[in-house]
């Protein structure tokens, strides 16, 4: 139909090439930082005896989500240990947690700023739509180019995929703070910072925590995909199961992903609901 073809693929490729060649040092530095985080987290958890880690996770679940969920966590984690997926479990957990820490460091300020500025919000909205609808596999290519193979690009791809919901829900939560509460703070002579820390964030906390919860869940869904670029963990076992048509092995790894997802979901959801210490 057209005598020419719009060279989107060339643009993107040369843009990535340009970034890699010109900002290689920056990516290396970032890579080292992420690797430091995820590796230490993993080693730290591996250094503990599985029983100790299980007890810690169970205690946290109990505190956040009650004893029923806590019992579920203990059973799930014991099964994980029993079927020999403990190390993969810890790798995946540290990958997801690292990605989530990065998501919070980046996502919260962006979300807050988006709530304060309509202009900024209208700029990032299409970007967030793009990030969420672009097939997750596509992130793997630039991640590999920037960060090579291994854990770090896995974390980065997970980060990009899991970022949007936190930004969106932080933005939404702060915008939903009743107008009168803001007026009240203003009328008492609050500074912008005081308004943010003492009124907006605490009141929006439930919604923001829902954003944290959502982004962790999305991050977990990225785990298997990230295994394709050598991120390791449970995804690798799932992948191996697919490649060798070993249904049983793939199912086991998938089951542990589900167990991890449920534990993390209950803990973060519990945090959101604990807002009224009145204990409603």
């Amino acid at each position: 139909m057209f005598p020419f073809r719009i060279p989107i693929r060339d643009w993107i490729s040369s843009a990535v090439d340009f970034l890699v060649s010109e900002f290689g040092a920056v990516f290396d530095g970032f890579s080292a930082f992420v690797y430091f985080l995820v590796d230490n987290l993993k080693d730290g958890m591996m250094a503990l005896h599985p029983v100790i880690l299980i007890v810690l996770i169970a205690a946290l679940t109990w505190y956040m989500a009650g004893w029923k969920n806590s019992i579920f966590a203990v059973i799930g984690l014991l099964i994980t240990e029993n079927i020999g997926l403990w190390q993969a479990f810890v790798e995946t957990l540290s990958l997801v947690l690292t990605a989530e820490i990065l998501v919070m460091i980046v996502g919260l300020p962006i979300g807050i700023y988006a709530a304060k500025s309509d202009r900024f919000n209208s700029i990032i909205r299409p970007i967030l739509d793009f990030m969420q609808t672009m097939p997750a596999f596509v992130y793997l290519i630039p991640a590999v180019m920037f960060f090579g193979l291994g854990l770090v690009p896995g974390v980065v791809a997970t980060f990009v995929f899991a970022l949007p919901p936190l930004i969106r829900l932080t933005n939404l939560g702060i915008r939903q703070v009743p107008k009168e509460l803001i007026e009240a703070a203003d009328a008492f002579g609050a500074t912008e910072m005081q308004k943010l820390m003492k009124v907006q964030i605490p009141v929006a906390k439930v919604t923001i925590m829902a954003g944290v919860n959502q982004s962790i869940m999305l991050g977990l869904s990225m785990v298997v995909i990230a295994a394709m670029i050598g991120a390791g963990g449970l995804g690798e076992d799932v992948l191996r199961g697919i490649q060798r048509l070993q249904v049983g092995q793939g199912f086991e790894a998938g089951l542990v992903v589900v167990i991890l997802a449920i534990i993390l979901d209950r803990i973060t959801a519990g945090f959101g609901q604990r807002k009224s210490p009145a204990g409603r």
Binding site: P178, E180, L181, E183, A184, D186, A187, F188, G189, A190, T191, K198, V199, P202, V203, K205, K275, S276
Partner: peptide, 23 residues
């Protein structure tokens, strides 16, 4: 203005109270 509000106004009392739910 912020300083003036602090020294001269007892904040404000609202129809729907506008007190902080988390405190």
């Amino acid at each position: 203005l912020r300083e003036f509000r602090r020294n001269h106004f007892c904040g404000m009392v609202f129809q729907n109270f506008a007190i902080l739910p988390h405190r």
